[in-house]
Structure formats: C-alpha cells, structure tokens
C-alpha cells in the first residue's frame, strides 16, 4: 500500500511467554480497543515500526505529487486545472498530517526527510511509473486513490491515536480524488475514438501496478502477523487487494473498458473475481529502486529540498533577528 513493506523488527508475533509484564499489559489494551497515545508506554518495536509505517505513508503522499504535478500546466480546461491543483495540494497536506503524526513518536522531521532523500526510506512503488497522457490523471484518481482509500479506511481504527486521527482527515478528503478521476475517464470514453483509446491505454498501464500497491502476497508478507496484532494493519494484503478488484472491475465495465488480464474471471461460487498471476519480479524491481521513474522521482525531491534550503535558513534568521529586537526593546 502507501506503506507496502514495513519491517516490524521481528519475524512473527511475540507470544505470551517471552513478553514482559509491560508488553502484556500493552497488548491487552490494544486487544480491548483502547487507543495508544504519544506519552503512553509502548514497546520500542511498536514505536519504530509505526515511525517507519507513518513516514513511508507520508513520503508516498509527497512523492505522489510528482506524477500528477506533471500535468497541471497542461490540463485541458480551467475546471480540470483547478481540480488537479486542489488534489495535488491535498496530497501535500496529507503528507504534512502524517509527518506530524510520526513526530508525536519522537521522530524528527529532518531525519525523516533525510531518510527519504538518501534512499533509506521507502515510498509506494506506484509513484515510480510515468504519467504519459492526460488519461493517466484519470487512472491515478480512480485506481491509485481508490486503492489508497481501501487501505486507509480501516486505518482510521488503528491502535495509535494520532495516526488514526490523521487517517480520518485524509479519508474525508480523499473521496473527491477518486471521483474526479473516474469522472475524467467517463468523459474520455464518451469522447472521440482516440480519447477512448487513450483511456484504455491508461487502464492497461495502471491496472497491475495498482494491484501491486497492496504489497506482497500474504505468504510472502512476514510482518503482517505482528502488525495485525498491534492493530496498525487491520486486513491482510490479499484481503484488501481482493476487495479492490471486486469493487473496480464493474467500474471498468461501466466505462466500457476492458481489464488487461486474459485470466480474469468471475467465480460464481465464491462471489469474487479471480485474476491472473501478478508479475512479482516487476514489483520487487520497482521496490528495490529500478522502476521506470525511481531515480527521477528521488532526484526531483532532492532538488526541491536543496533549492528551498536558503528559504528555510532565511526564515529562521529573520525570526531570530526579530526575537532579539523584541528582547532588546
């Protein structure tokens, strides 16, 4: 998902025997559904895992502005330009809500950004794909934000209070993101043949990467069990992926577009769609830095940060100067 592979620092769930008294009391609180707040005692692994998860999530929001920002100056109408500007501004806001949630755990904003810029921290694999046509903006809203919502709605009930509250705000704002994308594509499929073909091409390129957003298959996801026990993950990767597929396939049919998967079929008995094999080599390639745009995205983030350094320093110097003057007066 927006945080696809969060290391919990352990291979599995820590059982009753090894856990300390404090850890057992902590787990009991979580089991009871009492939220954990910044000053409460928490196991160091819980804290570290959450910092990793929340910062990955924040980085994804921030890097996620790049593929869409690419089209702001080329939006086909003023209406679409306003919508896209508002959406990209929201992503910046979501990144900030999340960074501030991570800071309640004692992380410093600077350290989190350093980790992103020097490649130690991850962000969602989906943002390493290029936005080649205007239809991609529709596909991102519909599919990428759709997948994000699928993941984020359950996180509104996660065990860590500040993270859960940030998710509530994000989810409230996110539903327009998905709807504007679908509406954009709806307009295109009702347009000229070229426009319809462009919409189909966007779906062809974004479908599989969107499914990969949910992370590795459950069998390969070693940290899921611990994260679920801590309630910082509420459903497994495959559960969420399946829900997304079941919800999205009929939406594609409504658009008159076809899903780029020859093995896709409806299973009458289970009431679910079944898909072909996901190309996990592609997934791991993108995760490990070798997707189509990994280098470009990181370079853009670094440049933006470095180009802004003088502004940050000047603002600080200005504030210090004014404080000194006030003190002297």
């Amino acid at each position: 998902m927006y945080s696809q592979f969060v290391d919990t620092g352990s291979d599995g769930q820590k059982g009753g025997q090894d856990a300390s008294e404090q850890e057992r009391a902590f787990q009991a609180r979580i089991d009871e559904g009492i939220s954990i707040e910044p000053k409460d005692w928490m196991p160091e692994k819980y804290r570290k895992t959450l910092v990793r998860q929340i910062s990955q999530h924040a980085h994804s929001e921030i890097v996620g502005m790049l593929p869409e920002g690419n089209w702001i100056t080329r939006a086909p109408s003023l209406r679409r330009k306003l919508i896209l500007l508002a959406k990209v501004q929201d992503e910046a806001g979501h990144g900030l809500y999340l960074y501030s949630a991570a800071e309640t755990l004692g992380a410093s904003r600077d350290d989190l950004l350093d980790a992103l810029h020097d490649g130690r921290a991850k962000y969602s694999s989906i943002f390493n794909y290029p936005t080649l046509t205007w239809a991609d903006i529709g596909a991102i809203g519909w599919l990428v934000d759709g997948a994000a919502i699928m993941n984020q709605v359950p996180l509104c009930r996660c065990s860590y209070g500040p993270y859960a509250r940030a998710m509530v705000r994000v989810c409230k704002e996110e539903s327009f993101h998905q709807r504007q994308g679908y509406e954009l594509l709806l307009e295109m499929v009702n347009g000229t043949e070229e426009q319809k073909a462009m919409a189909q091409d966007a779906l062809n390129r974004w479908w599989w990467p969107s499914l990969m957003m949910f992370g590795p298959a459950d069998g390969d996801s070693v940290h899921t069990q611990q994260s679920m026990a801590w309630k910082i993950k509420r459903h497994t990767n495959d559960e969420l992926r399946q829900r997304f597929i079941d919800q999205t396939v009929p939406q594609a049919h409504y658009l008159g577009l076809s899903i780029p998967d020859p093995d896709l079929r409806w299973n009458e008995e289970t009431g679910h769609y079944e898909i072909g094999e996901i190309d996990w080599d592609e997934f791991w390639n993108v995760v490990n830095g070798n997707g189509p745009c990994n280098r470009e995205r990181l370079a853009a983030r670094r440049t933006a940060y470095e180009d802004g350094a003088w502004v940050r320093e000047a603002a600080r110097a200005h504030a210090e100067k004014r404080q000194k003057r006030r003190a002297a007066a």
Partner: peptide, 23 residues
C-alpha cells in the same frame, strides 16, 4: 487538529490555515 512547523507565530498561523482549513 494536528501540528505544523514554523519559525514564528505569523508563519504558524499561515501554515495552519493552509494545512488544516482547505475545506
């Protein structure tokens, strides 16, 4: 509603407005 970084009160006010009152 959350927190923000700023060098002084005026910037804190502006940033709070941008980040937390877009709706």
């Amino acid at each position: 509603v959350g927190s923000i970084h700023a060098t002084d009160a005026e910037m804190a006010m502006n940033n709070a407005r941008d980040v937390y009152t877009r709706r």
